[in-house]
Amino acid sequence: SYYEILDVPRSASADDIKKAYRRKALQWHPDKNPDNKEFAEKKFKEVAEAYEVLSDKHKREIYDR
């Protein structure tokens, strides 16, 4: 789930989600993982997609249904 990707509970606040996104984006940024760039790019995209949905109140409500 998007919550698992960002490592936050379903009850996470918008601020918690933003902090988790920043932490995970740094962790999986391809430039930070030169030895495993392809895998890092995949993870980085997953993190971005999760944040896009969970950071938008309307999209998150739909996702949580």
Rank of each mutant, 00 (worst) to 15 (best):
E49V: 11
K45Q: 12
N33H: 15
S1L: 13
F44P: 01
Y51V: 03
A20T: 02
H58T: 15
Y51G: 03
K19Y: 08
V8P: 00
R23V: 15
F39S: 06
R65V: 08
A20C: 04
V53F: 05
V53N: 05
R60L: 02
K43I: 10
V47M: 07
A50Q: 00
A40P: 02
F39N: 07
P30W: 04
E46T: 05
L26S: 13
D31C: 11
A48T: 14
Y21E: 02
E46P: 02
L6Y: 01
I5N: 03
W28H: 04
V47K: 00
R65C: 11
Y21S: 02
R10L: 09
E38R: 08
Y2L: 12
Y2N: 02
A12L: 01
K43L: 07
D56C: 06
A40Q: 06
L54S: 01
R22I: 15
Y51M: 04
I17T: 00
K57Q: 14
D56N: 09
K37D: 05
F39H: 10
L6C: 01
A20R: 01
K57S: 12
K24E: 04
Y21R: 03
K24C: 08
A12G: 04
F39V: 11
L54N: 00
I17A: 01
E4V: 11
F39I: 11
Y63H: 04
E38N: 09
E61A: 13
R22Q: 15
Q27I: 11
P30S: 07
A50E: 00
A48R: 15
E4D: 14
E49I: 10
R10D: 06
I5D: 03
A25L: 15
V53W: 07
E61I: 08
Q27S: 06
P9M: 07
I5G: 01
V53D: 01
L54Q: 00
A12S: 06
Y63T: 02
W28G: 02
D15T: 10
A25F: 15
I5T: 07
L6F: 02
K42M: 11
Q27C: 07
A50G: 02
L54I: 03
R23T: 13
E4N: 10
D31E: 12
S1I: 06
K18D: 15
S55A: 09
A48M: 15
R10C: 13
F44D: 03
K24H: 05
R10E: 08
E4W: 09
K18S: 11
I62R: 09
S11K: 08
I62S: 09
A40E: 03
P34A: 11
E4T: 10
A20S: 05
K24M: 14
N36E: 07
K45G: 06
K57R: 13
E46I: 06
A25Q: 13
R22F: 15
Y63N: 02
A25S: 14
S55E: 04
A12C: 08
S1F: 09
N36Q: 12
K18I: 14
K57H: 12
K42E: 11
E49F: 07
K24P: 00
D7W: 04
K57Y: 09
A20Y: 02
V8K: 01
K19S: 12
L6Q: 00
Q27P: 03
S1D: 15
K42P: 03
S11F: 12
D15H: 11
I17E: 00
E38H: 09
K42A: 13
A40S: 08
L54M: 03
N33L: 05
A14K: 08
Y3T: 01
Y21W: 09
Y51N: 03
